[in-house]
Write a protein that binds this DNA or RNA. Structure first.
Lengths: 207, 207
DNA sequence: CCCAATTTTCAATCACTTCTGAAAGTTCGG
DNA sequence: CCGAACTTTCAGAAGTGATTGAAAATTGGG
């Protein structure tokens, strides 16, 4: 029956929007922004600001802000309909492309600045590395600048920072690999990994 | 000079704590919790609640809560010192082990529930798939339940859900692979990838 | 070039999360 | 068992970030 089918479809969309909204925190955007994206994704076609306001019961300002942010993230694009002055918006429909965009943004917004800061911090203790500070000429006379204990402290601190630095550099490289045009390779690899696991584990599920 | 070296070390620790605190949002924990973790990590050895309160200038309650949460995440452990009744806390020192723990937690907290919900949502429109709802006996008489247009709508909705479902299933499998004891393989692979990039690009940096 | 439709901005408000500190609870040596 | 040392809890305070709505800016048609 028509009405029932439509109702079921709308209900499913609403649940999807709600679930997606809860995930918002997980990748660092606001709940509303995630809901707007969910609505656009699950609708499939272009919606205008008023459609979104009405469906999600949010203010015009909020809708506008969220849409702009989604455009910035590159997972929603403007789509005009001819004969209509309004702007319509459409979500990226390829899930992998969408996540590539998200990873790209998060690398630039989070990992890059973090790495920069970490390098700065690492440099703060580099001068101490050789066992003495070079601050004063007086010390150059030969008096040991740091005790053995202190040297050890500094060395341990630096190696902890280095380990972490290396981790994030690996992470960034991996991320860029995934994001790059060549990154589709990773998608294929991941999908394959999926298949292989299926075969190995007997196709059904765990174990 | 002793005092200078100590001051530089402490300053570096403070900056590290601040930077780490800013990252808190990125993986869904509170700023203080991240700072406590940063302090424990960068200190290297065990600290007691009062050490943490004093250094970070937070209340006893806050310190207690944050420590408990970090214990739950499995990236900080209790460490007693003999002859002392106080509890000391030490952060996981292996960066890869630490991130494995974080990924493990985030999969159970975020991806698993998400997948469960998505399957439920998918099931909401499955009955419509064959082109008619089975709700009423009357319809079984032969009258077409859905128009072609509606069938197409439902089909499109379902295939969008399926695509996303498949993505998250791949993601979860990848995550579990990383987290599992065998997951060290991935660590090695990633590190190797790092090396290879270095060699290919001429060891220094970009390009 | 002007007007009306539409979008964007932003200060005030609201909702939610985190933090505090004192009180209650727990644990251990004696 | 008692009491001191230490930890946890929790109700309210403080702080942070999201949301509104109306005013300002922009845009395109006539």
């Amino acid at each position: 029956m028509d009405a029932d089918a439509l109702k079921a479809l709308t209900a499913a969309q609403d649940r999807f929007i709600a679930v997606w909204g809860q995930m918002a925190g997980a990748w660092g955007i606001s709940r509303t922004m995630a809901e707007v994206h969910a609505l656009l994704y699950i609708s499939g076609d272009g919606l205008c600001t008023d459609d979104i306001m009405d469906r999600l019961e949010i203010s015009r300002g909020n809708a506008s802000m969220s849409l702009r942010a989604l455009l910035d993230w590159g997972i929603v694009e403007r789509a005009h309909k001819r004969g209509d002055r309004k702007e319509y918006f459409r979500a990226e429909q390829d899930v992998w492309a969408m996540f590539r965009a998200i990873v790209r943004e998060r690398i630039t917004r989070e990992v890059d600045p973090l790495l920069a800061s970490m390098h700065e911090i690492r440099d703060m203790t580099s001068p101490l590395e050789r066992g003495r500070s070079r601050k004063t000429q007086a010390e150059a006379a030969g008096e040991p600048a740091l005790t053995g204990e202190q040297k050890h402290l500094v060395a341990a601190h630096n190696s902890r920072l280095d380990e972490m630095l290396q981790f994030f550099e690996t992470l960034e490289r991996l991320g860029n690999q995934f994001v790059s045009p060549a990154g589709r390779g990773l998608q294929v690899a991941a999908t394959l990994l999926n298949r292989v696991s299926d075969v190995v584990s007997g196709k059904g599920g765990e174990r």
